[in-house]
Nucleic acid binder design. Structure first.
Lengths: 244, 244
DNA sequence: CGCACACTGTGTGCGCTATACACAGACCAT
DNA sequence: ATGGTCTGTGTATAGCGCACACAGTGTGCG
């Protein structure tokens, strides 16, 4: 009930401003910090983001940031809020499957654009505006289904987890496709060397099938859709069990 | 082909020892470092693990560790190897579903015992012995299915991702169950406050159903199994499509 | 209207981190 | 025996998050 309980960062993100108070006006908004931090992270990964670098980007001193965020973790919250942006607008006339697929695709695109998101240690469940908006959008994809609210939550989380998980497999934070190819070939070579058929027959079988394309390492769009379909098939069968 | 290409840490983990050389004998093995680091991480989370603390735990100086691991990332590799241990022995006479469920359960137990695993930034695909053994065990669960090796890999990865993802939701690295309960109640309160039914009807619906049990926050065993079944249903339907 | 005080951004400094580098001693192949 | 190489150590550096004290700013209240 008590709104004061909300951490200050969340208050600011939700626009619950304490009205005019004595003292100098803040020189910028918390979202400016987020923008600068995201810019740095996009360019150089998450460890290119430090309080001093973000401050320098804004033209301020390091310590001034602490007037806006209580700690580094708060900065991460703001960065996530900034990076995610608004969720896609889903077409409620389409089927649930098409809607959640679009949602998942957009989510995936976001993670590819900001791979550092996956490096952020998750400390708390999401409470910021855009994060909740994404949750809401994902839940609404199931509006036309007979699933209970809890089932919808589980289904949405399942898709969420899938997207994050596959992105994590692919995100070596190597943005140049050449580097990815080299890393993949190197990995296949080493795996071939170590996973001998006698001790690791299953892995070896995976390796030997297409001798030249090999383990396609990079989890490309087709593979992503294929796995997603498997997940959605599972949700479908749960729906089927309800309607029968 | 060239075994020398393997990073030194992996060479040591695989027991590919360089034969006897001049100079003093190493005082300990790389696995001792792993053991000490895991002990620290279990006690105080991943940021309780630093080179100096691990060294102190072993009774050596900080810099001595760098004779064994090239950098901090190598330490993570050793820690993972140590923490995972041998995969469970699966009963090949059971069905694939039962086998992969047991695999997933053991994996989940491991993550609950070592929550810091989820905080380790994944830089490279797995190549260490235990990691490959876990992969192999997961693949072999599908031995009795008509799935292709690539499909088995996808299915195993899917289950792997699911376990990791759900563990991440639950792992606030709060080990005391009381703290988890408090955090959950606080989260539900805040969510109720912020996710108003007009703007977030889907989320609100999730919250209002069991007014006293609420969003059960903690992803308990039953919920885990329920979601896992959904994933397995998806795999099952892929199998069905092959056999029809 | 003016003053008090809360709030702003700044500067200094501490303890910690990873790790580069030089060095003294230990040991094995020769 | 001895040369060369590996061991663990000591010292040093650049960077990090953040605590704290401070000077100035501007608003609400008297």
């Amino acid at each position: 009930m008590d709104e004061q309980e909300l951490p200050r960062v969340l208050q600011q993100l939700w626009g619950i401003e304490g009205r005019s108070r004595p003292g100098p006006k803040p020189a910028f908004h918390i979202s400016d910090i987020g923008r600068a931090a995201v810019k740095l992270a996009d360019a150089g990964g998450l460890n290119a983001v430090s309080m001093s670098k973000v401050a320098a980007e804004l033209g301020f001193t390091t310590m001034s940031l602490y007037r806006y965020v209580g700690a580094k973790d708060d900065l991460y919250v703001v960065m996530l809020e900034q990076a995610f942006g608004e969720p896609p607008a889903l077409d409620p006339t389409k089927g649930w499957r098409e809607q959640i697929t679009a949602w998942a695709q957009t989510f995936r695109d976001g993670l590819r654009q900001h791979p550092w998101i996956l490096q952020i240690p998750i400390q708390e469940p999401p409470l910021s505006p855009h994060q909740l908006a994404w949750m809401e959008a994902g839940l609404q994809a199931f509006d036309s289904t007979p699933l209970t609210p809890q089932d919808r939550l589980s289904a949405m989380l399942l898709v969420n987890i899938y997207v994050r998980g596959t992105a994590q497999l692919t995100a070596n934070m190597l943005t140049e496709p050449e580097a990815v190819q080299v890393a993949d070939r190197l990995y296949t070579e080493r795996l071939t060397m170590l996973a001998t058929p006698d001790r690791f027959p299953g892995i070896a079988a995976t390796l030997e099938v297409p001798p030249d394309e090999g383990y396609a390492g990079d989890f490309d769009a087709a593979e992503f859709g294929f796995g997603l379909d498997t997940v959605l098939d599972g949700i479908q069968s749960r729906i089927d069990r309800l309607t029968s």
